Computed example of a mutant assay.
Amino acid sequence: MTRVRTGLERLTGHPRPVGRDRVGLVTNPTGVLPDLTPSAPALLAAGVRVTALFGPEHGLRGAAQAGEGDAAPADPVTGLPVFDTYGRSGGDLDALVASAGVDALVFDMADVGARFYTDVWTMYDLMESAARLGLRFVVLDRPDPISGALAEGPQLDPAFASFVGRAPVAVRHGLTPGEIALLANRTIKARLDVVPLSGWRRERYFDATGLPWVMPSANMPTLDTAIAYPGTGLLEGTNAAEGRGTTRPFELAGAPYADGRLVPALADLGLPGVRFRETWFTPTFGRHAGAVVRGVQLHVTDRLAFRPVLTGVSMLHTLRVLYPGAFACDPFLDLLWGSDALRRALDAGRDPRGLVPDGGPEGAELLYG
């Protein structure tokens, strides 16, 4: 197996794309070399003039929960000032970036392969700021951990663009951060450079890269979590539990109103590459915190056959059919799905599984075979 070399590893050997620019590094705990050296000290050791750090949702240190940033004023490792981007966009984000006094922004964070994971949209918003401020923007590419061979689900309807989806990509998009940046830059027109991966092919999952897995956020502990997330993440737009507050977020799902019919109904669907085991869990925080929740654990038996988005949509439909008086969607589902089509189908009692196309990644400039 050929070990994948990330954009960070390649830039530390040849820092030419940033030259002597004052660099604002956009990163989190996933920004590491293969020996787990964080990107900020790695770039400083390579002679890159990193003068500021920018943190995304969950913060520079990854300690914050969903919907939170990081208020730490300085990085304890490098002493560099930290700028919290979460919740900022447009002119507010421009002012934050301008206050850092940098000439270039360098993005080094892992994605998880689902459109509604926000790290790449932090990248998108900062690319827009860089374009308005005349700054260089450099993406240090990293693999799509759930492979880049398959896209699943509809592309985003621009009318539903939000921080859980800015560009027209599928729910499971099959793209690297660098490929999303190139797609986005067709309209943003930033001074963009992508430092590509070497040794990565689209069919490779993260555990075939030779790279260490680092949790992208507090509720994304393992590759197994990331494999399930493009489907079970849709539960966040409903009143069911997606497993936050447990040791198996996004692999556990259920609701206090579920009963013994749920697992047999899901099993009868014959969904590819997955089995369902009945379980009970008590979330320590988040939706239904402190309540005993009856539901399922997803056991992915064949990740090449598994279709996470189809599975997630099927779970929502099954909950709607079995518990019509209890299960409910909310408008956030529209933002997760990228249109209101899924919510309208569920509310009307229609089978929404026909809304889940799959195929190869589309609409992007693919960097890897």
Rank of each mutant, 00 (worst) to 15 (best):
T6M: 07
G7Y: 05
T12C: 14
P17H: 12
D21Y: 01
L25Q: 13
V26F: 12
P29A: 14
A42I: 06
A45Q: 13
A46G: 02
T51C: 04
A52T: 01
A63R: 15
A72K: 00
F83I: 04
G87P: 13
S89G: 13
G91Q: 09
L96V: 11
L105S: 08
A114Q: 05
A131L: 12
L133S: 04
F137G: 07
S147T: 14
L150F: 10
E152W: 09
G153H: 07
Q155C: 14
D157A: 06
S162T: 13
V164Y: 06
G165M: 10
G174D: 07
A181P: 13
I188H: 10
L192A: 06
D193I: 10
F206A: 03
D207I: 05
P212W: 03
W213A: 08
N219Y: 09
N219V: 13
N219P: 11
T222G: 03
T225P: 06
T225R: 05
Y229E: 02
G233Y: 01
L234I: 02
G237L: 09
A240W: 04
A253L: 14
P256R: 11
Y257M: 00
A258N: 00
G260A: 11
P264G: 07
P264R: 08
V274K: 12
F276N: 11
R277G: 05
P283V: 14
A291Q: 15
G295D: 03
A305C: 08
T311M: 12
V313S: 07
V313G: 08
H317K: 00
F332C: 00
L335S: 14
W337C: 11
G338L: 14
G338C: 14
S339K: 09
L346D: 10
R350S: 13
G359E: 13
G359R: 11
A364Y: 03
A364D: 02
L367N: 01
Y368T: 03
Y368F: 04
